[in-house]
Design a protein around this nucleic acid. Structure first.
Lengths: 195, 195
DNA sequence: CATTATTATTGAACTTGTTCAATTTTTTTG
DNA sequence: CAAAAAAATTGAACAAGTTCAATAATAATG
């Protein structure tokens, strides 16, 4: 099936699995469809899965006490999505994971993931390498957030994620950049005027 | 030796090693002393180590084109320090690692670390778990950086790292919080006035 | 301990970003 | 396709944070 091929290609970027190994690992996943505006995970729930997005986009965000949303990341096709804190430590999630389009994910449970670690050490390596990459990306974003102005972060975002930019509302992008959507609107006007 | 006991206790928080396993792993480390204001790693160099701090404090930071410093984290006794991006991908470092006091680290090279992964799978687990924890902490910091005001981030910092706060200058703390040190000074005045 | 460096404070003018409220535009849905 | 809902724009008043330049306080060093 197409979505399993996507998963295989994704894994192949980090470690090589034989047909048999992949087939076995792939049976650990179940498919789930989530409609737009529905949740894969809500605040307070314990995250019992790690997901691989095969269709659509999810946003992973925090809601602060003022009701403002801070988006940690977007996960579209070919990305992994979970609340790693809740998942690994069995803690109530402080994050929401919401579908921004009608979406589809392959989900693996914690116990299946742990079995895979044991049966297939390459899987442990896979997740270690993925976590490292994600961490490096977040370090870069943290530095940008400390040093760059919102204008520049917006320009960088468009350049880095042109396909994502097309599919997201400015409300979403503003919540990712950490500015009000009104201010993002003014940034857009300013940039448009410069061209 | 005292510093190896520190290392062992640190590892023990995540995985258990027998005396023999630990002794073997410990031989991979070499001790290095770094004087205050000297560098463990400079921008442009490839990071060939992962370090465990046994004495002193390091700051891991980026210098932007304006010459402003953004501090990613501080590593004091009992913390690990490296540039994970440069280390894992053999890329020139975009970060500096500088000793803020006369310091001492135990260093392990990439090849020794990789041997350990192979000889002792618990070590792979150790680093996977540590990276996950670090990642979760950075996610929380990212959310705070998107949602909280500098006053609140400063108050949080003092509360979270009271011992670190005592040993750092306000210049360092400002570069960590992402504000000018002048503004931090005004925050401090405001907070002092409230008490 | 006297001198020099670095760090911290302060004020004033300025820039960046927020909030609120109103209006327009676009998208969704019956 | 009409109506309703959601998203985007705009302006005005405000708050948060920067920059620059001067001064004071602390720490480092011969």
């Amino acid at each position: 099936m197409f979505m399993y091929q996507l998963l295989r290609d994704n894994i192949e970027q980090h470690v090589h699995l034989s047909d048999a190994e992949f087939s076995h690992f792939a049976t650990s996943f179940e498919t789930k469809e989530i409609e737009k505006k529905q949740f894969l995970l809500r605040e307070g729930e314990i995250c019992r899965f790690e997901g691989f997005v095969t269709k659509g986009i999810f946003s992973v965000y925090h809601l602060d006490k003022n009701g403002d949303k801070q988006i940690l990341y977007f996960a579209h096709e070919n990305w992994w999505v979970t609340n790693i804190d809740s998942f690994t430590n069995n803690l109530p999630s402080q994050l929401f994971i919401e579908a921004l389009e009608d979406s589809e994910v392959l989900l693996i449970s914690k116990s299946d993931k742990e079995s895979a670690y044991i049966n297939l050490p390459k899987i442990e390596k896979l997740f270690r390498v993925m976590t490292q990459k994600t961490h490096v990306a977040l370090q870069r974003r943290m530095i940008d957030s400390l040093s760059k102005t919102a204008d520049q972060r917006y320009i960088d975002f468009i350049e880095k994620y042109p396909q994502l930019y097309q599919r997201l509302s400015n409300l979403q992008i503003a919540a990712y950049l950490g500015v009000s959507h009104e201010f993002l609107s003014k940034i857009r006007r300013k940039i448009a005027g410069q061209k």
